[in-house]
Nucleic acid binder design. Structure first.
Lengths: 197, 197, 197, 197
DNA sequence: CATGAATGAGACTTCATTCAT
DNA sequence: TATGAATGAAGTCTCATTCAT
């Protein structure tokens, strides 16, 4: 069975997503992941070196998609709004597609300033840089005012998105297919055009 | 000596801030806090019931100040910009005053969706509500367009601020007295007026 | 292929010698043995019941040769010196022929007072008895003084040899073809004639 | 209670000696040591960093005494026989005083070519060097023939002693106060004067 | 014969918390 | 108040062994 191997590995990783999302990485025991996946304890260690490695892999797997998407968005022709909309859209789609995974990534990696955040800082930084590039382009073209640095703007933009996801995660913002679509537009409009009437 | 007591308690709390900021809450041992404070192991348990309680206290202590400030800002006369500027200003001043504490609050509580985040959700929610109130007021007055919900706008605004702090924490944004001042203005201008020229 | 079977089995056993010698029995994993032998994990268990059994077999295989040799030496005509020289010679030749195997035998069995040492005590005891018999014969013939018991003398003699091997194993004594030959003579001369001038 | 601390630490170390001697280091669980000492599991780790450290300390503690004794013996005036007798005597007395400890040292360290043996090789080597020095002195004085190297002679001498201890440990040689005394004399006589009549 | 995925008991180590002094 | 020894539950990781293919 050629997929038997890959399937179990995937099953463990998927179980890890659910367990990490539910209990948090630190409170999640490896045995929780194993039983969630319906496999024996030791099999987890057959496929992964450590509990940490699972989280690392989960993060990198998803984050590299985000980086690829940001890359493409930036290279494509289009207005700033379209480009920033592409980035926001991808992140929100990622959440829509697998909210647990995005929760884990945000809560355990992106904001975990000490352990995993530090480990993946280069990858994280790259994503911010992509956004900053977009802003910088718009400033060069005169579409954006240049009173704020591109890096600052990138942080504000990304932070706004992440916090909306956090709102959904914590149950502070209403969640629905419509809301997801609205959010994409709203985020960009808020950051680009501002809240002012 | 009536202050001897208070001093030791304070010393432990302050040590906890430094240790939690440096190592993260989970990696920090109670003994680390004790030795950072220069007191004996067991004394921590004389003043606090548990390791968790220290973090809870640290959070609530600071967060209540934020709530108070938001309250006052809202009640005071002034433009939306001034009000939002007041909130952003208070948060950034909090970071300027004690970066370690704000780091701990953001990393370990505000974004920790499972444990402490859940515990303090009511308090956290209250802060978001204050911001939403300000937005709602501006929408009622016609100063803000009402295409986005006040709650959504509040999240975007707060998220932008928090991410700027995160940028400082991670060393992704330049940090200086000037930068702090600029940030206050930039955040409000970005969210209220947008990035567009 | 009747030898295909035997070959794989032998390959595993030989690999075990190298791995046990390199890492020690306890630190050696069955998978280490398998990969050293270039066979699959489970095949080890096709040929052997357990990890222990490999060591047991390794020991018994070699030790029985030593017992046979001691037997023959004892029965043969000759002086005590020649007989003891025969025993010492055989042990040193064993080391010369396969140092890893002798290292494993000495380190993991002969001196392992609790586990394998106990298991193989009867076989080990037999070897000491052969040496004691030789000494006893010499004492009966008046060639050796009888102030020490044959058992005691046997231990001293065997211990001297084993420690010389240990010296080679640990790199404490120089090792070369010449040294091996010298050692054979020196050991016997030292024990029989003493160090005194 | 000023000795309370030291007592518990000692008790654990002493318990470790008994447990390691009985079950062997690898088969001994830390919990076995703790319950043998009558203390809680965790207290072992209050006093020692690891299971290994206990063995290391046990070894070094005793071995340094042996080194000191060898040092003194060598410096003292006296014949070679007296000097070698001093060394053999000290080792045998060590065994008489605490057979379990000597068993552990020999079985788990002195002959454990891989882990602990390697760790303590410098200390072990020093002891052999002391004996070699004595032999060298006797060869220089013409008391000993110089056909064997001092190092070789030292190994043979030390090996003979250690094997006698091994004989006691394994129950292969009779053990009694008288036997201990006899052994001291016999070992030296055997190595110095030889077995020949 | 051969493979290597799957199992699960076992052991070390950590560390929050308690307690005697 | 203050100390730090003492407790023991909990969790990660290892690895011998089994088993389905």
């Amino acid at each position: 069975m050629v997929n038997g191997q890959a399937d179990k590995r995937r099953a463990i990783l998927d179980a890890a997503i659910r367990v990490f999302a539910r209990q948090g990485f630190h409170s999640a025991r490896v045995s929780d992941v194993a039983s969630e996946a319906g496999v024996a304890y030791g099999l987890v260690y057959h496929y992964f070196d450590s509990k940490d490695q699972m989280l690392n892999e989960l993060f990198s797997e998803r984050w590299s998609l985000l980086l690829d998407a940001s890359e493409k968005v930036q290279e494509r022709e289009g207005s700033v709004r379209e480009k920033l909309g592409g980035v926001a859209g991808f992140i929100i789609e990622s959440y829509r597609h697998d909210p647990d995974l995005m929760k884990v990534i945000i809560v355990e990696v992106t904001r975990a300033a000490n352990t995993f955040g530090q480990t993946h800082l280069p990858e994280i930084r790259k994503a911010y840089a992509r956004i900053a590039d977009i802003v910088e382009g718009a400033q060069g073209a005169g579409t954006f005012r240049d009173s704020v640095s591109p890096q600052f703007a990138a942080m504000a933009f990304y932070g706004a998105i992440e916090q909306v996801l956090t709102g959904w995660i914590f149950g502070l913002l209403p969640e629905s297919e419509t809301e997801y679509e609205l959010a994409k537009a709203h985020i960009v409009r808020t950051i680009v055009g501002g809240l002012a009437a």
